[in-house]
Design a protein around this nucleic acid. Structure first.
Lengths: 141, 141
DNA sequence: TTGATACTTGACTAAAGAGATCATATTTAT
DNA sequence: ATAAATATGATCTCTTTAGTCAAGTATCAA
């Protein structure tokens, strides 16, 4: 699975919003963009997509910004990558024409599934905890 | 890890050569291309790359073609993908600028490593066995 | 009511990579 | 000789990626 800059930025933004969700005031795009060196107008595009997905809400006007509008425990990096990124993982060959192609396709699928499994376990809430408590290894039941 | 058509074709070709390595006569590009619906001139390009890697050898002239020049047990799909494909797995962000970016980078790396692990176990010889003996599950020590 | 701040929207562009395609040359068996 | 193969370098089109721009709209605060 190739993670584009777009997907990476989307994850950065979602994490920033998750971290700052305690404070009442919304977070401005500029703040996130400046802190992470992301081109502002590009981040605007990305947040529009996230809003279309219903994952963030926007507050217009002065002192406006964005707020997370979902439970951070319910969104994983995989969700974001699949929603924002266009690039499929693995390889989609047309109609396993030959036994060899079919066998290879299965390997590509297995490899892609392995990546997806990792990213599917990384919820925003876990990552926020990780970011807050430093690098200590954490155990979950 | 995104598997391009180029990588997929390269793997098909290597498997074909591995399967037909018993017979003395080399395999023509046309034969592989026709059997799998691969554009001939494109496959030529790919076999050139494989030859440059020292994995196949070419025999020119009439009745010429290609032959595997390495042990099929020593080459995996990962080797081929990394040698032929240009696209890196995961995501390379520049110099983990922030804690959040660094944390994400680690997730991208973990996901990429999971894919690589799967493809790294798929040697040509195993796949050839699989292709020959049908779909029976095989056990290796 | 006016200005500053911040989001909204749609269009646009440059660069890179993917996936071929083509023409021409060279080698070898028969 | 000639047919069958590979060798080589150039070129081409299409899609995606990453980013930019301009003009509009909403809200707050003085």
């Amino acid at each position: 699975m190739v993670i584009s800059a777009r997907v990476h930025y989307a994850c950065v933004a979602m994490l920033e919003l998750a971290i700052q969700s305690d404070e009442g005031s919304p977070v401005a795009i500029r703040e996130i963009a400046d802190r992470h060196g992301i081109p502002g107008p590009f981040l605007v595009q990305i947040l529009r997509s996230l809003r279309a997905l219903g994952w963030v809400q926007s507050i217009r006007g002065s002192h406006g910004g964005y707020r997370l509008s979902v439970d951070p425990a319910g969104i994983t990096l995989l969700d974001i990558a699949e929603a924002i990124g266009s690039q499929e993982a693995g390889c989609r060959t047309e109609a396993n024409s030959t036994p060899i192609a079919g066998m290879l396709q299965k390997q590509w699928d297995d490899a892609a599934e392995a990546s997806r499994s990792i990213l599917g376990q990384a919820t925003l809430s876990r990552l926020v905890d990780k970011a807050r408590h430093g690098d200590e290894t954490m155990f979950y039941i």
